[in-house]
């Protein structure tokens, strides 16, 4: 019964997000006054049943619903939606939906396709530290995603201004400086979340007694590389006061690494760390 309800709710949420994607593409290509309000409303409406599904899964499993491809993607997609809604509503940031909303929808579709698959987790999956480690990592990835899309918008708008392309895309995208400021904030927040996640991860490794085994783990390594890139970006922006196209390109590089790490390792490969044995008692 719970499975059926979950499928129905996921279906409703995904359909609403698909509609939001269609409208966001239309918004960018049509010169009319198709408002982004509609996209925001559809996305918000879609997020509600998806949140309900995630909560159901959590209640059912008695742990945070962030394990297994389906829940992981759902959690990540919801984090991206929440960040986007904050950016769109708080900062009136329009235009980035054309990339972000279809991307989120794709994640949902991928997640939906893995729904119902058996998820094997270690007994430690219910631990608070692991929950904090995974949640902060996913929220950090979501913030990296939004900052990457903002950086992409920056590069496109920069190109429009340089090449004097004054089409619909030029009109829809926000000013360069707004994109730069917001990118800066997202990077700061992403760095904070990734730092917390790494700290929780290290603490967890110590608790579980795996020693320094995690140093050889590709997932940890790629996350540390991402963390390093974001550390450099935060330094460049806060201490060196660097802005502009160069910073946007580095942000995009960070975002591509997030995609490789998250989608590549978490989704298409086995999402666990190499030192975690399913069923292990401590992790």
């Amino acid at each position: 019964m719970m499975g059926f309800l979950g499928s129905i709710l996921t279906g409703i949420g995904t359909v609403l997000c698909c509609l939001a994607s269609a409208f966001s593409v239309l918004y960018m290509v049509s010169p009319g006054k198709a408002g982004e309000k509609r996209i925001i409303m559809l996305l918000s409406a879609g997020a509600v049943p998806l949140l309900a599904v995630l909560s159901l899964h959590g209640l059912q499993a008695g742990r945070l619903p962030v394990f297994g491809r389906s829940d992981m993607l759902l959690f990540y997609a919801l984090s991206v939606i929440a960040t986007y809604l904050y950016v769109a509503l708080q900062h009136r940031m329009r235009g980035i939906s054309v990339v972000l909303v279809p991307y989120v929808t794709l994640c949902l579709l991928l997640g939906g396709s893995a729904m119902g698959q058996q998820v094997q987790t270690s007994p430690a999956a219910g631990s608070t530290w692991l929950g904090l480690h995974v949640c902060t990592a996913f929220i950090g990835f979501a913030l990296c995603t939004v900052s990457g899309v903002l950086a992409l918008a920056y590069v496109v708008q920069n190109n429009n201004l340089k090449r004097k392309h004054l089409g619909v895309v030029f009109e829809r995208l926000p000013p360069l400086e707004s994109l730069d400021h917001l990118m800066s904030r997202q990077i700061g927040a992403a760095f904070l979340m990734l730092t917390l996640s790494l700290a929780f991860g290290v603490h967890l490794a110590r608790l579980s007694g795996v020693g320094y085994e995690w140093v050889r783990d590709p997932k940890v390594m790629s996350t540390i590389v991402i963390w390093g890139i974001y550390a450099v970006l935060v330094h460049m922006r806060t201490s060196a006061h660097r802005h502009g196209q160069g910073m946007a390109l580095v942000t995009i590089a960070g975002f591509i690494l997030v995609l490789l790490t998250f989608l590549g390792i978490h989704i298409f490969a086995d999402g666990s760390h190499i030192f975690v044995a399913v069923g292990a008692t401590d992790f």
């Binding site: 708008q157 201004l161 030029f170 000013p175 360069l176 400086e177 707004s178 400021h181």
Partner: peptide, 9 residues
């Protein structure tokens, strides 16, 4: 218009 597309405020 260009000023508005480059600068925020």
């Amino acid at each position: 218009e260009f000023s508005g597309k480059v600068f925020e405020d």
